[in-house]
Simulated assay, not measured.
Amino acid sequence: MPLLQVTAAQGALKKSDQDALMSRLTNALLEAERAPIDDAGAQSLAWAYYIEQPAGTIYVGGGSLDKAPLRIAVTTPEGALNKETRAEFVAAVGKIVDDIVGPYEGRLNHWTMLTELDEGSWAGAGQIFYLADIKAAMNIKVA
C-alpha cells in the first residue's frame, strides 16, 4: 500500500511521459514490496500523485531553474521495504528517471525520499491498516 508523489515543474513532461513515469515508478515500487504487479488488488492500493509546481518555483542553490529536478517522495508502511528492497527501488527509480527525463549535466535530475509510517499509522475508511493486512490485500506472499 505505497503512496508515491512526484513533484515537477509545470510542463516538465509531456502527458505521455508523465503517464509512463508514474506507471513505471508504481510498478517498480510494487516489485520492491514484492507485490505481484499484475494483481488488481495490489494495483488498487498503489496510489500515486503527479504534482506540478508553477514554472520558476523550484529552487536549487537558491536560484530557480528552467529545467528543475523531480522530487520523488515515497511513503510505505513500516517494514514494507527493507535495506535490500529500498536499494533495488532507488536503483530502478534512477533508471526510470534517466530514461524519461534524461540526465542533467553537472547535477541530479531527481531526489528520491523514502518515508515509513510506524505500524498502526496507516489508515483509511475509518480504520487502521496493519502491515500483515496490507500484504494480504496486495497478495504479497510472506516468506
Rank of each mutant, 00 (worst) to 15 (best):
T26I: 07
N27G: 08
N27Q: 15
L29I: 13
E31P: 02
E31L: 11
E31F: 00
A32F: 02
A32D: 04
A32K: 02
A32Q: 00
A32E: 04
A35D: 14
A35W: 06
P36W: 02
P36S: 07
P36V: 09
D38P: 05
D38N: 15
A40Q: 08
A40T: 15
A40N: 03
S44F: 07
W47S: 14
A48H: 15
A48E: 14
A48M: 13
Y49V: 13
Y50A: 05
E52W: 00
E52C: 00
Q53H: 03
Q53E: 07
P54V: 10
A55R: 15
G56H: 07
G56N: 05
G56S: 09
I58Y: 00
Y59P: 06
Y59M: 00
V60C: 01
G62C: 05
D66C: 01
A68I: 02
A68K: 03
P69A: 09
P69Q: 06
L70A: 01
L70R: 06
R71F: 06
R71H: 07
A73R: 09
V74N: 02
T75I: 09
T75N: 00
T76P: 04
T76K: 08
E78F: 09
E78I: 06
G79D: 00
G79V: 06
G79N: 05
G79Y: 03
A80Y: 06
L81N: 08
N82K: 13
N82M: 05
N82C: 11
E84L: 05
E84F: 01
T85C: 08
R86N: 08
R86V: 09
A87G: 13
A87D: 11
E88G: 06
A91H: 12
A91M: 11
A92Q: 13
A92S: 12
V93H: 09
G94V: 03
K95S: 11
K95C: 06
K95T: 14
V97F: 02
I100K: 00
V101S: 06
G102F: 02
G102H: 02
G102Q: 02
P103R: 09
P103Y: 04
P103H: 13
P103S: 13
Y104E: 13
E105I: 10
E105F: 06
G106A: 00
G106M: 01
R107Q: 10
R107D: 05
W111Y: 12
T112P: 08
T112K: 07
L114W: 03
T115A: 10
T115M: 03
T115N: 09
E116Y: 02
L117S: 12
D118T: 09
E119G: 08
S121I: 11
S121E: 13
S121Q: 12
S121C: 12
W122F: 12
W122H: 04
A123M: 06
A123D: 00
G124E: 14
G126W: 01
Q127I: 08
